[in-house]
Amino acid sequence: MTTDDPNFAPYPGRYEVARIKGIPPNEDPVLLDITGEADVQERIDKIREIVERGPIPDGGLSWNHESRVVTVRLVAAVDGTSPEVERLKEEVLAEAEEFTVEFQEDLTVEFQSVAYSRQELLDLADHIFFSVAPGRQIAGGWSTSENRVEVLIGEGDDETQTLIEALDDKRIVIQIVPPGPWEVL
């Protein structure tokens, strides 16, 4: 099998493995794994699919590779009071357990209740960053961990205060930053 996908390459060490086992080398391309976390990322992607197709609006996922914790944010109480949330949690935890059994590595999942859905905040970020007048020093994006849209505004702009007032929304966190060599929108 050959592929033109740059994310695939021949299995490294295939000739040594084949020589030791006394078999022909496997020439099929395998997924490149620069970080060493391709298996974990594949499982996280499966967890994301479970959450996205679930009945509860999702507030985003994050992965902490140091603690090996996947945080699943849901726009619902995660305290055991909702049967729908509990079913979703069971399905996610089963996926994580399957990884633990298959790879003999822990994959911890934590659930967090948040106020806003991922889609709501992504839509808000798109609205903010694509409707600001060209030439303004503004940047930012959706913050999964904050469950808000973070907006960075360059200080010293004549219209900074007007922009701050226009962005008065509990879903937005504003940070004033020193002017710099920003790429202008």
Rank of each mutant, 00 (worst) to 15 (best):
K89A: 07
F130P: 00
V101E: 15
Y116G: 11
F103H: 15
Q104R: 13
D106P: 12
L107Y: 02
D123P: 01
L124K: 09
E110W: 05
A133M: 02
D106V: 11
W142A: 08
S131F: 03
D126R: 00
Q119S: 14
G135A: 03
F129S: 02
L122N: 12
V101L: 13
S143W: 05
E102F: 05
Q112Y: 10
I128Y: 11
E91N: 09
Q112L: 14
R148V: 09
W142S: 02
R136I: 09
K89L: 00
F129R: 01
H127E: 14
A115K: 15
F130Q: 13
R118Q: 14
L122I: 02
T108G: 10
T100I: 03
E105F: 10
T100K: 05
R118C: 08
S145W: 11
S131C: 00
F130S: 10
R118W: 08
E97W: 05
V109K: 11
S145Y: 10
A133W: 01
G140K: 10
D106I: 09
L122S: 03
E98G: 12
Y116A: 08
S143D: 01
V132S: 02
P134V: 02
L121M: 13
L88W: 05
T108D: 15
G141Y: 10
K89P: 03
E102K: 13
E105M: 08
A133R: 10
A125T: 09
T144Y: 11
G140W: 11
Q112V: 12
K89C: 01
D123A: 05
Q104L: 14
E97F: 04
T100Y: 00
K89I: 10
Q137C: 04
F130R: 12
F111Y: 05
E95Y: 06
A115D: 13
Q137N: 08
W142K: 10
W142N: 09
E98Y: 06
A115H: 12
E105D: 14
A94G: 06
L122F: 11
F129W: 08
E110G: 11
V101T: 14
E91K: 04
F129M: 05
P134S: 06
K89R: 13
